[in-house]
């Protein structure tokens, strides 16, 4: 196996050293988000721990996606959207004027609700990120990254013999794994996932959930989900949003077994939502 890939695994073990591990990778302080005059998020304070899966849950319209999209500034694309407060990635304010959103998104990747592969070949889908970010200097390095990413996304076996076929020709679950492979190919620190399984059948969902658990080793993952079972299965920490407020955060187990807030209690027992 090639250098880069071994180095990448090496990098992960470095990251796993307790010394680096402690500080949260993202810290959000007093985040308010407005769509025009309408306030969608109210004073959100949330830390995202490194190399863990954090799930965001809550009833529809409570602002989960909005918060998630603040973390890599995808909200910039919405003209009327305004973000106030302080969000730091590794101690740097990501809304600071000198920040280049493009560079930010290289470090904070995203997987969307509906699989959205480019209508290009499987290979080009994955090679696109490394190409535009200038991560490789030769074709063979690029080949290695493509293979590594597909392997990490558990898709290599299924597609290794048809890399030049269009990515849009894969099944829904395969497409979503392709999107995950595409996201990790640029070696981000954090991967944001907005309901990544909502368009998939249970078997494909299970595959992705396993994948998320494996990816945790190397990446920090934030996932929005409507399924409490899914949150319980894949995440170590959970944050419960309600009507634009962050009601409660904690270790997933504690939050689901002994929630502190009544609203959380009602939600996980199915009384609101």
């Amino acid at each position: 196996m090639n250098n880069i890939v071994t180095e990448m695994s090496g990098a992960a073990s470095v990251q796993n050293k307790p010394a680096v591990n402690k500080a949260p990778i993202f810290t959000a302080k007093n985040v308010d988000v407005y769509y025009g005059a309408k306030q969608a998020l109210d004073k959100i304070n949330l830390d995202i721990p490194r190399n863990k899966v954090t799930s965001l849950i809550g009833p529809s319209g409570c602002g989960k996606s909005t918060f998630l999209r603040c973390l890599n500034r995808m909200n910039d694309l919405v003209d009327i959207c305004r973000v106030e407060g302080d969000i730091q990635l590794e101690g740097q304010d990501i809304y600071a004027p000198e920040v280049d959103v493009v560079a930010l998104r290289q470090h904070v990747g995203m997987v969307f609700q509906k699989p959205n592969p480019f209508p290009k070949s499987i290979y080009d889908n994955i090679a696109y990120g490394p190409r535009i970010h200038g991560l490789t200097s030769s074709k063979s390095e690029l080949d290695d990254i493509v293979e590594w990413s597909l392997q990490r996304a558990g898709l290599w076996k299924e597609v290794s013999d048809r890399l030049q076929e269009p990515g849009t020709g894969l099944s829904g679950g395969q497409q979503q794994r392709l999107c995950i492979a595409r996201a990790i190919a640029v070696r981000p620190e954090v991967i944001l996932m907005d309901e990544p399984c909502s368009a998939l059948d249970p078997i494909a969902t299970a595959t992705i959930e396993e994948l998320i658990d494996e990816l945790r080793e190397k990446f920090t993952i934030v996932i929005v989900t409507h399924s409490m079972q899914q949150a319980a299965r894949v995440s170590q920490r959970t944050a419960f949003f309600h009507l634009g407020n962050l009601v409660e955060t904690g270790a997933t187990k504690t939050l689901f077994t002994s929630p502190e807030d009544e609203r959380t209690q009602n939600y996980i027992t199915g009384r609101i939502g």
Binding site: E7, A11, L89, E90, Q92, D100, A103, H107, G134, E189
Partner: peptide
């Protein structure tokens, strides 16, 4: 040292992209 080591050890570079 590989690029990622550099990136995590030092600050993440989010102020300048690679494009022109």
């Amino acid at each position: 040292m590989s690029p990622e080591n550099a990136a995590t050890a030092a600050k993440l570079n989010i102020t300048a992209g690679n494009r022109s």
